[in-house]
């Protein structure tokens, strides 16, 4: 009896293989879907966490550009906080100092890269503004003014396009 029980649960039994076929099916479908979404045309702008972009019917694809994000009173440049703007603060005029300083550095760096590549003549400083849908125009205006002062005259507003 004991021998029989040992035989049932013993090492002599061939382990049944794990059925992986259904899992492979799921993974294949998932892989194809992800590959399709990976192959997109043009530049990709990733929304900055914390920024709720407004929806729009625009279908214009974004181009390679510096990204400025605005939400609450915070201004971020390429994912880094550069300024905190108090509402109704017009003591320092329209210019946002912290943003202007970083934009000047970014522009100088991009210009240097373009010069090294021999594309100095074609270089156009571009900026994409990711504004939270609740920000007031006053803040957007100050950011646009600062971008303009730093030489970024090609400005576009990032939105959630019609899918």
């Amino acid at each position: 009896m004991a021998r029989r029980r040992r035989k049932k649960s013993g090492h002599g039994r061939q382990p049944s293989p794990l059925p992986l076929t259904s899992m492979m099916d799921i993974l294949t479908v998932l892989l194809l879907f992800l590959l399709k979404s990976f192959v997109v045309e043009g530049e990709v702008i990733t929304p900055v966490p914390g920024v709720d972009l407004p929806e729009s019917s625009s279908e214009t694809k974004p181009r390679a550009s510096v990204v400025v994000a605005i939400f609450d009173q915070t201004v971020m440049l390429d994912g880094r906080m550069v300024a905190q703007v108090e509402p109704n603060d017009h003591v320092s005029g329209m210019l946002i100092e912290g943003l202007a300083e970083k934009l000047d550095q970014t522009r100088a760096k991009e210009l240097e890269i373009a010069r090294l590549r021999g594309e100095e003549a074609e270089y156009v400083p571009r900026i994409a503004i990711q504004g939270d849908l609740e920000i007031p125009f006053e803040l957007l205006e100050r950011v646009m003014y600062t971008c303009n002062q730093s030489g970024f005259r090609d400005i576009s507003l990032a939105v959630i396009g019609a899918s």
Partner: peptide, 18 residues
């Protein structure tokens, strides 16, 4: 799959040129 999930674009971000 994790690599593609990280780089996947689920939101169609477009721009309005000013």
């Amino acid at each position: 799959i994790p690599m593609l999930l990280i780089s996947a674009v689920f939101l169609n971000v477009t721009v309005i040129d000013m």
